[in-house]
Design a protein around this nucleic acid. Structure first.
Lengths: 248, 248
DNA sequence: ATCAGGCATGAATCAATGATATCGCCAACC
DNA sequence: GGTTGGCGATATCATTGATTCATGCCTGAT
């Protein structure tokens, strides 16, 4: 059973130049594989073809990535990073809902720009759970969702919002890529996006006043309507909300 | 170059019993492959394993289906037909929009019930264009869309509606299957469905009144900023807010 | 400066798999 | 009854993922 790619262990006496060389060949192999994938499709990405394109021997791939799946994983991560680096995302926009749209568009654009890579990452369901690139992509959205929530725009749970954003983007991209060129209607993408925005956000923020105090005031007023907390919990919650409301 | 599966040609002199026998073995092979796929996953579906399970020789598969892709295509079509036959869809319901919901639910249920098969059919984008099962699945929705259009419920183009329905279902299923069991929230499916309904039809969405959930979500996101409560109080408050936020 | 050890290199190699070739038999058609 | 065509069966080829093994180099210690 292979231990996976060798990594620097604290006890290992490994020179830095060797580690650098290793990182260099690793990068070369990943780029060769990514190029092969984008240029000739997934079936062209064989260990032999990658090794030949990168100028290394076949066993080197297994030393570097453990197995072919490890290589593909590295390719996915590299492709995603490269795309994000090229787009230099501007973190803040005027409106959090606009940020949401921009984030969704970005995810979709990644799929449309790198169809083979996207199919690799999000085609087979099983890969989703373990992929590092999967979480990396989600993480970008989490920050925007948090700001939506802070502004009182979020219509649903944060986790549900993340799932909705991802699912709509995934369906939009895969469906788009499935369609022949002459049937690809850009309206599909905008419709999916706006549908997602409507599902995830309110038209008006649920809280008028900004900051924790404002949110606490709003929740305090609506507290009698809730049915999930016990009366004791509700009572204590009410006191805390009063303190928070008077804090600002 | 294989001509694909042999079919009855008008000029061919082929006895009916031979054709029946052919159909029988064909069916047996398809079922063996489908069983293998559902039971042991896609990687277990090798030509040898299928041939052994069906009690035929490996070359028989190629005589019947042309190549492995033809076999998988047949498996997809068979699986879809079998699912629809088992559900005996009632064609007409009281309301065309309800029909739309039912059709979407059906498509999603198919995916959740046959994850491996669904990944086979809708995982890789390229397969979508040529697959017969792909069009068969779409065709069922087209009828319902037509009735929506006849009733004046359709908000968008019929083709766009079909694409939207398919894309939302595809994203919902693949995302659902990607999530580990403990993170699968049924609300994702209903939210995706209602989002689709809102995008496709004129039915006005049930305006869920704000309620405490929205304010709870807002306060939850802003909780780290508050300075009034102790960390223990904040922790417990966070848990309550999570419960309130996911209530709506 | 010398030497021991580990690690990468390079070739060969294994096992699994998709896909065919070939041969013979049996049944159906003329 | 002869012939043709399809099917069963065995063997086989080519590709590909993955591994083994011996060799040699380079690092780091003595």
């Amino acid at each position: 059973m292979p231990d996976g790619p060798k990594v620097d262990t604290p006890s290992a006496a490994e020179s830095e130049v060797a580690a650098d060389a290793r990182e260099l060949t690793r990068h070369r192999v990943v780029e060769a594989a990514a190029d092969l994938l984008a240029r000739e499709g997934r079936d062209a990405v064989t260990t032999r073809a990658v090794a030949a394109a990168a100028g290394v021997q076949a066993p080197a791939i297994y030393r570097l990535f453990g197995d072919k799946d490890g290589l593909l994983e590295a390719v996915a991560e590299h492709g995603y990073d490269a795309f994000l680096a090229a787009k230099h995302v501007d973190a803040h926009s005027r409106h959090p809902v606009e940020d949401l749209r921009a984030g969704w568009d970005l995810a979709v654009e990644f799929g449309l720009t790198n169809p083979e890579l996207y199919a690799l990452m999000y085609g087979e369901p099983k890969r989703g759970t373990t992929s590092a690139a999967f979480h990396a992509g989600m993480q970008i959205l989490v920050g925007r969702i948090r700001r939506l929530a802070a502004g009182g725009w979020l219509r649903v749970d944060e986790k549900l919002a993340a799932a909705l954003i991802h699912a709509t983007a995934r369906g939009a991209v895969l469906t788009w890529l499935s369609l022949p060129d002459d049937q690809r209607d850009p309206a599909l993408l905008t419709a999916m996006r706006e549908s997602m925005v409507a599902a995830v956000t309110h038209e008006k923020p649920a809280v008028q006043d900004a900051g924790p105090a404002g949110a606490a005031r709003t929740l305090r007023a609506l507290l009698p309507e809730q049915t999930t907390l016990s009366s004791a919990e509700q009572h204590l919650l009410g006191e805390w909300l009063d303190r928070l409301a008077s804090d600002g």
